[in-house]
C-alpha cells in the first residue's frame, strides 16, 4: 500500500524528517506517536501533498506510484485522505456541496459517472447517523462555526463517504472529550477493511484503547526510534517519551 524509504524532509534550511522508513500493508493500522515537534504532522502533510516542504532525499511509493510527483488533488482521487488536525473553515461553501464535489472528482478520476442525487443523499444521511451528527450540519458552510469536536466528526464523515484506501488521521483525537472520541473511533472502526490502511498520528495513547493498531511507531527528532505492537503504546503511557528521546541523543 505505502512504502516510505529513507525520507528526508526540510522546511527552508531546517531538516524535520531525517530518514523515515515505513511499510504499510493493506488493512493495517499504524499509529505514529511522539512528542511535540518530533515531525508527526510533517509526515501527515507530506503524504497529503501540502506545499512548503522540501524532500531532500528518499521516496514514497503508494500503490506502486511515486507519490511525491502527484499534486494533492490527484492523491485524494487516488484514495489518500487526510483528516486534518485543524480542519479549515470555508465560509460560503456548503458541507454537502463539498462532499458531492469530492466524491464526484474521485468517481470521475476512475471513469465512473457522477453520483445520482438521490443515492448520494441516502448515503450521506446514513453516514451522518453513524457519526451521531445533526443533518443540519450538511447544509452549513464547511466547518464554519463548528465546535472542535464537530469539526473532527465532520472530517470522519467526509472520510466515511469518500471511502479512501489510505486514511491519515492527524491528531484527530486532540481536543475531543471521551464521548466524541468514542463516536469518532466507532466511525473509524466501521471503515476498517482488509483493503483499507490507516496512519494514525496521535499524541495520546488513549485513542489506541478505542482503535487497535497493528503497529506503533515512535517518532522523535525526525526519526522512528522504536517500533512495536500495541503494547508499545502502553509502555509509552507509563514511561513517557523521554527514555526514547535520550536513546537518539546517545
Amino acid at each position: 500500500m505505502l512504502s516510505i524509504k529513507n525520507l528526508h524532509v526540510s522546511v527552508g534550511d531546517k531538516p524535520i524528517l531525517k530518514g523515515i522508513n515505513l511499510e504499510i500493508m493493506p488493512g493495517e493500522i499504524h499509529a505514529i506517536m511522539g512528542p511535540n515537534g518530533s515531525g508527526k504532522s510533517t509526515l501527515s502533510h507530506i503524504l497529503s501533498g501540502k506545499a512548503g516542504y522540501e524532500v531532500t532525499e528518499g521516496s514514497i511509493t503508494y500503490q506502486g506510484k511515486n507519490l511525491l510527483e502527484l499534486p494533492p488533488e490527484i492523491r485524494a482521487r487516488e484514495g489518500i485522505f487526510l483528516a486534518f488536525q485543524y480542519p479549515v473553515e470555508i465560509p460560503g461553501v456548503s458541507n454537502i456541496y463539498l462532499l458531492k464535489a469530492a466524491l464526484n472528482s474521485i468517481r470521475k478520476h476512475h471513469g465512473q459517472p457522477e453520483v445520482d442525487a438521490m443515492d448520494f443523499l441516502t448515503l450521506v444521511k446514513h453516514k451522518v447517523k453513524l457519526l451521531d451528527m445533526d443533518e443540519k450540519f450538511l447544509y452549513r458552510a464547511v466547518n464554519e462555526g463548528f465546535s472542535g469536536g464537530e469539526k473532527k466528526r465532520n472530517e470522519i464523515l467526509q472520510m466515511a463517504i469518500l471511502e479512501p484506501a489510505l486514511c491519515i488521521l492527524d491528531e484527530t483525537d486532540s481536543g475531543l472529550d471521551i464521548d466524541a472520541l468514542k463516536i469518532v473511533s466507532q466511525g473509524v472502526n466501521s471503515l476498517r477493511s482488509p483493503e483499507r490502511s490507516f496512519v494514525m498520528v496521535t499524541h495520546y495513547q488513549r485513542l489506541l484503547d478505542y482503535i487497535k493498531p497493528d503497529m506503533v511507531h515512535v517518532l522523535a527528532h525526525g526519526q522512528i526510534v522504536k517500533s512495536g505492537g500495541p503494547e508499545l503504546a502502553l509502555e509509552l503511557e507509563e514511561k513517557g517519551y523521554s527514555w526514547l528521546e535520550n536513546q537518539v541523543a546517545a
Binding site: 506545499a51 499534486p71 494533492p72 488533488e73 485524494a76 470555508i90 464535489a101 469530492a102
Partner: peptide, 13 residues
C-alpha cells in the same frame, strides 16, 4: 490553507 483543504478533498487547484 483553504485552497489546500479543498485540494485534499479532490478539488483541483
Amino acid at each position: 490553507k483553504s485552497v489546500f483543504y479543498l485540494q485534499s478533498r479532490g478539488v483541483d487547484e
